[in-house]
Design a protein around this nucleic acid. Structure first.
Lengths: 231, 231
DNA sequence: GGAAATCTTAATGAATCGTTAAAAACAAAT
DNA sequence: ATTTGTTTTTAACGATTCATTAAGATTTCC
């Protein structure tokens, strides 16, 4: 099997070369472009498996490049390298369709780990295509495709789109922390005072639905997010 | 298992050689660089497990070298050797991401002890890439992601963010000194009279939580920091 | 003994969250 | 186009959680 091909777009020459060497040693074919425009040209002339883009670059920044890449290819994994851990940047990245992002400086082993994780995720996702849409939550049963929440033999509750997405997300993180920010970005596509308030309203609605089973509850972790507890 | 690899950067030739020999005898592979620039080159060409850097060196001092190292690798443990025990230096070191520091002259056995303690601390966590968030503390169990402290079958105690961060940090330094300044910089992001007082308040809170197990205690080491003792 | 460091409790004010209700936006059907 | 019903957002207010500061007591170090 031939090596996976990486497009690395990074304007800092030193850092770029070190990173390229490191990835080459880790058995990837690396093409190193020095700015966004060069990156776009390389992208169009080759067939890469994954893109690693610096955010801040002359001529064309990483986000803008990502948008252009997405016009050609909706699936290719993109990892952003952001110098600062600005929330602005992270949000923007997710909107452009980032698969992951890393704050510089970072441990190169973490990058390697993320690359492999993403490549694996994509390939297995391709095999199975469909994602999970049925969840057991205590004595409740959620079918997120039909947007129905069932309890015993009772008539199922019909969920609105947002209720459904939120409960599904809580269920995929069952018994674990679902970070508030993540839900806002993925479901509300924005993270501000009002979307956050809106989310609280939906949490209240879900709690009302779920209160028939006393074993099930949604608890808040102050400043962090919510946790759906169910045996 | 192969020996752990140490990058030792020390400009004093006599001291450097003695230290290198001592560490080699203690079953480490030691690369000895004579100044900061040489150290950086060695760092980029090899794969070390830990760095020991003298602070005062010609061409490139230890702090500057540490910053460069951190650009490539955010996790690798760094120990500083400082001639004077200036608080300025210690703070600067921690801000650059030091794991520990030693005042010259020092007992080489102390250095050895610290190296092993740090490697142990890092290795268990680093295997999994993502950081550790579960800790056993005597009969207590801390889940720092969920911010809860459990004791036997009792209802877990919910920890506030600061309580959680502080206890987590104490736990990673379990049975060892957690330097006061380090906690202040990493958790409070500042080191002054008030943050220090605030930390004391949190130590008091944690002691209250932990007093159910008489085998567990947080002791103060006057002028140095705290030590979480647990079997 | 005296200065510096630490311990502990309590008070304050800010940020976050919970809940209800009303307003606005949206969609489907008349 | 207007009506009707659903969904989502905004508003308002109370409740809870949280970090900091103050202040006095106690301990440690020289």
């Amino acid at each position: 099997m031939s090596n996976k091909k990486i497009l690395l777009v990074e304007d800092d020459p030193n850092f770029g070369i070190v990173l390229k060497d490191y990835l080459t040693l880790s058995k990837f074919d690396v093409t190193h472009a020095k700015d966004g425009l060069e990156g776009l040209i390389e992208f169009k002339n080759n067939d890469f498996d994954i893109c690693i883009l610096d955010v801040m670059m002359p001529r064309k920044d990483g986000f803008s490049l990502a948008e252009d890449i997405r016009k050609t290819n909706k699936e290719i994994p993109i990892i952003f390298l952001t110098a600062k851990s600005m929330k602005e940047d992270i949000l923007k990245g997710y909107k452009v369709g980032a698969d992951d992002y890393l704050n510089k400086p970072f441990d190169s082993e973490v990058l390697l780990y993320k690359i492999n994780a993403i490549l694996q995720r994509k390939s297995s996702a391709m095999d199975a295509i469909e994602e999970q849409f049925e969840f057991q939550i205590g004595r409740f049963f959620l079918n997120s495709k039909l947007r129905q929440l069932s309890f015993d033999k009772q008539e199922p509750i019909k969920l609105s789109p947002k209720e459904n997405k939120l409960l599904k997300m809580l269920a995929t993180y069952k018994n674990d922390l679902m970070p508030r920010e993540l839900a806002l970005i993925k479901i509300w596509r924005d993270d501000n005072y009002f979307t956050s308030r809106s989310m609280d309203v939906y949490i209240a609605k879900l709690r009302k639905y779920l209160k028939e089973d006393s074993e099930v509850e949604i608890i808040n972790i102050h400043g962090e997010g919510f946790r759906l507890i169910a045996k």
